[in-house]
Write a protein that binds this DNA or RNA. Structure first.
Lengths: 247, 247
DNA sequence: CGTTTGGTTGAAATGTGTCAAACTTTGTGG
DNA sequence: CCACAAAGTTTGACACATTTCAACCAAACG
């Protein structure tokens, strides 16, 4: 664990910049936020359900996920994170965590104290609005996942998350037009989509044999974006990626 | 549509009061919020996916739901609302709505202009925090629903929502210890749980014959709360109902 | 009183889970 | 650098939860 250097904030800053233009003062304020940086291995819990954290975690690099475990020990991943996400930003206002957050790949994670963030939000309403907005986009993704899991068959479900991940990774500069690194195992996809690993395997084979995707060696290649979008019934509105007027 | 009288705000005020104590000034500020009140019939859309609303809707009485429709026309309800909820509070920071909101029963709904709420939040950070928190609790509910739909069988899923609804209604004074009005049809439960109406029917019969619940004439009676909780794998933590220290 | 809405039932079709085994790739220590 | 273990992927057969379809019933309603 070491302190942050200025460039560490770049995933967060570019994410905020993608929504509205930061003033010089705001950029300064962000860059001077004290943050503890840690490098984590894969499959490590960053925080756990039931924790009462005093800080938030900013994913600087790598993939992570938020998940819950049912009484009989089955895991449901409720969202994937991409760099620039703060998956436990909710803890700023909800004392007890109701989800765990775990790395899927090795990650660099920045920890920022709650008080620091509260100060920032109190001083600049635009930051409060920006962070609040982040949590609202998260919520929109949760809603879409409920729809995905509740009303689409596994084949379509899979197409849908692949579309989502590509768009989200592209938004933070981690994907080409129709390709990206996607180091997610079939078991993890299963936990995310509420489907058994075996079935995920079959569904992926179907998508491959239909000529929609290539997925091998942690590398996703979307061969027919238009048809994958249709199959996944994917409409990116819920990701709220468009630039909007500042508040 | 008519203007609000003071007592209209009571569902919202008691909800906020259940989280932290309002100062006299804050209570004043809330009561003086201009709000347009409308009485809606059942099964009416309040707002629709794709809308760009300039106001939020506060459910004053009745049940409503947020839902999305898939490309092939199947509806997924992503959450139920109870009085005091502001199901499109997200629209304060996300321009385009990604879900529709519809009444399930006749409802009284209050509309509050975005500017008014933004002003309030800017002037009193505690309100920003309180409303922000509301949206975070919503998000927690979405997450739990993903788990419910993704990892539990229909029988357990149903038990889970019944527990959730009882707790939420109790929190706003609309339920006894183990009973409440619950005017939700089996088709609506189906859309909420990602299950066909027919199967909802069978699952309800099972819950009834196990002696766990009575559900008839829009009246839910939980006969064995402890076992229903177990069957539904229900842990209310995610509802974040406990009183917390002010911010 | 007929019509609509919501609930109930049965039988057949099907998507998905489970189990168990084999295969492939990756990582690691000797 | 090989050998072995561990992790991830693939396959087939079978079980089962849930859907679909179609009909019927009961209560509410205008």
């Amino acid at each position: 664990m070491r302190a942050s250097s200025p460039h560490e904030y770049s995933p967060l800053i570019s994410k905020l910049e993608s929504i509205f233009t930061l003033t010089e003062e705001e950029r300064e304020a962000l860059l001077s936020l004290p943050m503890q940086v840690a490098a984590l291995k894969e499959d490590q819990d960053i925080v756990r359900e039931g924790d009462r954290p005093s800080r938030c975690c900013l994913i600087l690099s790598g993939l992570a996920c938020a998940y819950k475990v049912t009484g009989d020990g089955r895991r449901q991943i409720v969202s994937f994170t991409v760099p620039g996400d703060i998956p436990d930003l909710q803890s700023l206002h909800l004392k007890v965590l109701d989800t765990s957050i775990s790395t899927l790949t090795p990650c660099r994670v920045g920890f920022i104290q709650h008080e620091i963030l509260h100060d920032l939000c109190r001083r600049h309403y635009r930051f409060a609005a920006a962070f609040w907005r982040e949590t609202l986009v998260d919520a929109a993704i949760f809603r879409e996942w409920t729809v995905n899991v509740g009303r689409r068959e596994a084949y379509h479900r899979m197409a849908h998350v692949l579309c989502e991940m590509l768009m989200r990774l592209r938004a933070v500069g981690l994907a080409e037009d129709h390709a990206c690194e996607l180091p997610i195992t079939q078991a993890e996809f299963g936990d995310a989509l509420g489907v058994s690993t075996v079935h995920i395997n079959r569904v992926l084979q179907a998508l491959r044999s239909e000529g929609l995707i290539e997925l091998k060696d942690e590398q996703l290649n979307i061969l027919d974006w238009e048809r994958l979008r249709e199959v996944g019934d994917f409409d990116p509105t819920y990701l709220h990626l468009q630039r909007e007027a500042p508040r």
